[in-house]
Design a protein around this nucleic acid. Structure first.
Lengths: 333, 333
DNA sequence: ATGAAAGCGCTAACAC
DNA sequence: GTGTTAGCGCTTTCAT
């Protein structure tokens, strides 16, 4: 609609090919010509038409990011960090959120393919194996993808996630050292990867230490109310600690315990996961496991960039970001 | 890279023009031909190349959304709702976040222009008048824009926001009816529209009722710590209520008061704003003002759509979404 | 109602 | 080093 490459070419006294090459920093063009063209282009306020560029080069210069829920602070942080990481590249990020619906997720992936993204970063809603359907479509279209916050050991595809299993193990070790012996884990649905990993760590640890009376509760939801309601009515006898798969749930547990006139941490310890704002705004600061979302995002984004740029792919297909325990008052005995 | 319009045309035994028109539902094409072409296209798995489409039609079919901070739950909700609202349209949404940096915001707007979005939805970082610089660029490029969570009475441009002033007035009325007479408002920086409105409502109300000893504190930040720290050291004598411009701050105030051995609401009432999750997870449920983010997003998105589609523009240039007080325990006397 | 053909603005051989 | 030119895959008059 505005000044185009022919205008720049005319004004600079060169051909459009030269303008194109010069503006793209092609070494074959004399450095002086390059500078001259750049100056003219700038002066004229020339902005290459992205659609024409994409069409001619057969490259969309777009990367998609599919999130389960952008209103979840954890994924929002992932989005922001990915945005930042890609900002310096010449790729644009298209963000979408499936509202935790697998069906919506499929539609989004399909739309992304239709939109011809060059690569896709996916934080899947649920179980690994449910994605197979759209992975075929992705493979057919030749679109590289990397999974974030998920790992698919069987798949030969990049996965980046925080070491949930290791983080839970570390947390348990610290709590064990502090004398806790009978703990309950408030987790989410079974067969959901991010919960399974922590459930597994919990059970493995209890088995290793020969702890009796520890148990895992699979709640339907993982929000504040879900844990609040559960803790309000659960059997607490003999329990000395309640662990939750996120901080908001830990806060729910604390408030429910308070409602039952139990003190945290004196009567019972509580721990969360993520090190989100909720662990800090609690009346009793909550011990939690810090996930380094930024590092995960940076790792995933740069891997994605390597993929779309055809750089030597990582020999590994899983990048595990270590977690770190944050001991706070909710577990002091 | 795959099946293209010529392939479909060949297989369907028609010209590419017919395929194009048929697929776009042009009435001039015989309904039977249309159906036939659609069937063939579907069978072949034809996906129009978006870049070619955009180039030929000189339309990008893209709308941009510029947020100050996508990690803020309020804006994340705005993003999700806008995404949902545009999903059924044939426009794609490009989301970006400036991390509360005006400079970044300018860059993003510039990038959006370069990317040739057809319209822009902007939730500006700060003061209205600082945006003038990029508004010129937008006007030059002929790109329609609507402001969300902001209003610029002087500008002849669409603005959609919640009625912050009215919401604060309502809240004050309810608290006044409950007997509160000396209140403090914990607000953000001055000259920031969304704070100014509430500051103004607060001061107007106090003047109307002849309330003495009410005051506004302009904190540097508006997060949990900012209010927690402030309340920890502020003078509380004679105060019967503390209002905050968001729920997280209200929670900070409550926890700080508790640390000072003051009871909420018995000794002092506390209220927040937004009706976010924080007002519900508080040990004392917090009275707050509900902003209907969804309605705001829907209104802004459909207005945006009207603009880019060239529909009869709204005669008004401001859409105010009413707020609603949510009375909870933190203000029971 | 359908087809032929001229672009849309740019990239990338290939020729000079 | 720089210019010529043939596309990229689609939309859109304008004929027929």
């Amino acid at each position: 609609m505005h000044v185009k490459i022919t205008d720049v070419a005319e004004k600079a006294g060169v051909s459009i090919a030269t303008v194109s090459l010069a503006l793209n920093g092609n070494e074959k063009i004399n450095i002086r010509t390059r500078r001259h063209v750049a100056a003219v282009a700038k002066e004229m306020g020339y902005r290459p038409n992205p659609s024409a560029k994409r069409l001619a080069s057969r490259k969309s210069r777009q990367i998609g990011l599919v999130l389960p829920d952008i209103e979840n602070i954890y994924y929002a942080a992932l989005a922001q960090d990915t945005l930042n990481e890609l900002r310096m590249s010449d790729y644009a990020l298209i963000i979408s959120s499936s509202m935790n619906s697998r069906q919506m997720e499929r539609r989004i992936v399909s739309d992304m393919i239709g939109n011809q993204v060059e690569g896709l970063m996916i934080a899947p809603v649920e179980k690994p194996n449910d994605n197979i359907e759209y992975l075929d479509a992705l493979n057919d279209a030749g679109i590289p993808y990397v999974f974030v916050t998920a790992s698919y050991p069987d798949l030969e595809h990049p996965c980046v996630m925080c070491d949930l299993y290791g983080g839970m193990k570390q947390l348990l070790t610290r709590l064990y050292d502090r004398g806790l012996r009978r703990m309950a884990l408030l987790s989410g649905a079974q067969n959901v990867h991010c919960f399974d990993l922590r459930d597994g760590a919990f059970m493995d640890f209890c088995a290793e230490k020969g702890l009796e009376g520890c148990r895992v509760y699979h709640l339907d939801g993982i929000r504040y109310d879900d844990s609040f309601n559960h803790v309000q009515s659960m059997a607490l006898e003999g329990l000395d600690g309640i662990l939750c798969v996120n901080d908001m749930m830990a806060l729910g547990a604390i408030n429910a315990l308070k409602a039952r006139s139990l003190r945290v941490p004196e009567d019972i310890a509580v721990a969360g996961y993520d090190d989100s704002i909720f662990s800090r705004i609690s009346p009793v600061p909550i011990t939690t496991v810090r996930q380094d979302v930024r590092r995960m995002a940076v790792s995933a984004a740069s891997w994605m960039l390597d993929c779309v740029r055809g750089n030597a792919p990582d020999p590994e297909n899983l990048r595990l970001i270590p977690c770190e325990v944050q001991l706070r008052r909710s577990t002091e005995r």
